[in-house]
């Protein structure tokens, strides 16, 4: 299937799922109420659909797309099917930023947690970009990412440890589990700016990611400025991941699984994988959020919990089926 056709089919599927996700939710509506919501957006059913559910679905789609695109970029750059947006440690440091903001009582300020999470992501991203410009081996980047991730996790645990208030600790925990509950159009807009810059950087790295298929030396000898490619891909991925964590907390599996869902449809081409992977991520997260809302539980399930619960077994199955093509 050609790339435009594939993307069009995925956009149609995403639109369909988004419509279902806006229509379904905790508050059941009658057909008359749906009609009222369409005719009068300011009516109570209209408020439910357009002010509560639609922004939530939009944020879920944006976050999923960012994670899917970031995951595909990292897998291409590191030539590793197990790479994901968290591999560089950006998610962990971004989570630390949010945890610090919550424990310092900044949650009362609108947008403060998101800003702190984005600041954490930018600090970690800048550090990884400097390292990416300096070290050419993908293994070195992965190891730095693991170290940064461990440090971010340890410092977040320290925040829990030293937090004087159990309420703040519970808030941090809830935030870290990921959710798009109560997100509004402003949240979507705030996420859109860094995500757009990140997406442009990743898209510009696409051709280089394809050339990296045969290793760094062949890519260099094919005229690819490797340092620039690494900086572009890492900065783009860090911005996408940071913006996603700032908007919805730490959400696993989407960035890892989304590229694998569409890899076969683009014949494994790391360049053509980027946009379908973003759309697959959006589709996955909108579905996961829908599941979080409609699964009857006393408290709404956290998005990160749903993606891990459904994502882990599904990904294991996918990995088992795809393992044949990963041999080298």
């Amino acid at each position: 299937m050609s790339l435009p056709r594939l993307c069009l089919a995925m956009i149609l599927a995403l639109s369909g799922v988004a419509v279902v996700a806006i229509c379904l939710g905790e508050t059941p509506l009658t057909l008359a109420q749906y009609a009222q919501a369409l005719a009068h957006p300011a009516s109570p059913p209209g408020e439910v659909l357009w002010s509560i559910r639609a922004p939530r679905v939009l944020v879920a789609a944006l976050v999923g797309a960012a994670l899917g695109l970031s995951g595909a970029t990292m897998q291409g750059l590191l030539r590793n099917p197990l790479a994901d947006p968290g591999v560089l440690g950006v998610s962990a440091v971004s989570g630390l930023g949010a945890a610090l903001a919550i424990s310092m009582g900044l949650a009362v300020l609108p947008g403060a947690i998101e800003l702190a999470a984005l600041a954490g992501a930018l600090v970690a991203g800048a550090l990884v970009v400097v390292l990416a410009a300096r070290f050419r081996e993908p293994e070195a980047l992965i190891l730095f990412g693991v170290a940064l991730s461990a440090l971010g996790g340890a410092l977040t645990a320290l925040v829990f440890n030293l937090s004087p208030s159990p309420v703040a600790t519970a808030e941090v925990m809830a935030w870290l589990m990921g959710s798009v509950q109560n997100r509004d159009a402003l949240d979507a807009l705030r996420a859109l700016v860094p995500m757009t810059i990140g997406a442009i950087l990743c898209a510009r790295a696409g051709r280089g990611l394809r050339m990296l298929t045969l290793g760094e030396e062949v890519a260099r000898m094919s005229g690819l400025p490797m340092a620039r490619l690494r900086v572009q891909a890492v900065a783009g991925s860090a911005l996408l991941t940071g913006a996603a964590v700032a908007a919805a907390g730490v959400i696993g599996f989407v960035g890892l699984a989304a590229p694998h869902l569409v890899r076969a449809l683009v014949r494994d081409d790391p360049k053509r994988l980027l946009w379908p992977s973003a759309l697959a991520g959006a589709l996955l997260l909108v579905l996961a959020d829908l599941a979080a809302r409609v699964i009857p539980t006393e408290q709404e399930l956290k998005l990160g919990v749903v993606t891990a619960l459904f994502g882990a077994p599904a990904f294991a199955l996918l990995a088992w089926r795809a393992s044949r093509s990963w041999r080298s």
Binding site: L214, S325, S328
Partner: peptide, 27 residues
């Protein structure tokens, strides 16, 4: 520049690993 070098020399390394299952024509 990397581009100028690519126009002047082609290199086939010893390492024949291929990271992804790209079709031969794309490789």
């Amino acid at each position: 520049t990397p581009g100028a070098r690519a126009r002047l020399a082609g290199y086939l390394p010893q390492d024949r690993r291929v990271a992804w299952n790209l079709p031969a024509r794309m490789i």
